[in-house]
């Protein structure tokens, strides 16, 4: 038992903590999602230029925002994983990357759907769309590198380095893409887009948008935490505490276990404070 004490006490503690945190994010998250969607889709006034189709921003804007935010979060986890060699931070990268990639994909997808009625085309080389597409490639690179290694910890370290390199490069990529876009702005489509950028947004639209941004953050955090806990459990499946964790769920669903085993489970799982 003593062998696992030093670095392996950590995932256990993290697991217990995230288990406690999940409901605190999940409940407000679900409520806010419902509020923002109902408010945004049903009650906010239609746009004077775009009519009803603008309502996709209540999904598009939050996902685009947090796609970037989660990449930065992933890179921070990478720094922690590299500098302090903390196992949980390595797993956090694995937990964050797909969530971030899906957010990026949602923002691209909703952008395309929005673009079709607005600009008459599914895809334009708009600076924001392009930058978002590159962000998706960056996410895919981190994920592909992580799983390419046979030794999982080596994969985590490699992915951390790549995420950090990426996060240093992202401002440069963004700047260059925006600059490239203004440089090549010849088509009427892109000019139309820039015109659509209303400098101010009506408060009746702004409030549900802010709520939806917060809701997207909470829901994404819940997904990341759940993924993190799954990854921790998967790695620790042969440890007593993890078995206890799973044992308890088995116990409550079917009370088929004998008392001795139950006692054993409780004794070992007690420290986890689930």
């Amino acid at each position: 038992m003593w062998r696992w004490l030093h670095p392996y006490a950590k995932p256990e503690a993290t697991f217990a903590l995230t288990q406690k945190l999940i409901p605190w994010f999940a409940l407000p998250g679900i409520i806010l999602v419902l509020v923002s969607l109902v408010w945004g889709l049903a009650f906010a006034p239609p746009d004077y230029q775009q009519g009803e189709s603008y309502r996709i921003i209540f999904v598009h804007v939050p996902s685009a925002m947090w796609a970037m935010g989660f990449y930065v979060g992933m890179a921070i986890m990478g720094v922690i994983a590299l500098v302090w060699q903390i196992r949980t931070a390595e797993l956090a990268i694995l937990a964050i990357a797909p969530v971030g990639a899906v957010l990026t994909f949602i923002s691209l997808f909703t952008g395309a759907i929005w673009g079709q009625p607005m600009w008459g085309t599914w895809w334009v080389w708009d600076a924001r769309l392009t930058a978002q597409l590159i962000l998706l490639f960056l996410y895919l690179g981190v994920m592909a590198l992580y799983v390419a290694f046979e030794d999982e910890r080596a994969g985590a370290k490699a992915a951390s380095i790549l995420a950090i390199v990426g996060v240093i490069n992202i401002p440069i990529i963004h700047y260059s893409v925006y600059w490239w876009n203004t440089l090549h702005q010849k088509s009427t489509v892109t000019r139309a887009i820039t015109r659509l950028e209303a400098p101010s947004i009506a408060p009746e639209m702004l409030w549900p948008l802010l709520v939806s941004i917060l809701a997207m953050l909470l829901v994404s955090i819940v997904l990341v935490l759940m993924r993190l806990n799954n990854e921790i459990l998967r790695r620790e499946i042969h440890r007593p505490w993890a078995l206890a964790e799973l044992g308890i769920t088995l116990d409550s669903s079917a009370k088929a276990h004998n008392d001795a085993e139950k006692k054993n489970v409780e004794k070992k799982g007690g420290a986890d404070a689930v």
Binding site: R3, H6, D151, R153
Partner: peptide
């Protein structure tokens, strides 16, 4: 010294 490779403890102390 302690070394862990993959999920296995090689040696400690």
């Amino acid at each position: 010294l302690m070394s862990i490779r993959g999920e296995r403890m090689l040696f400690s102390d």
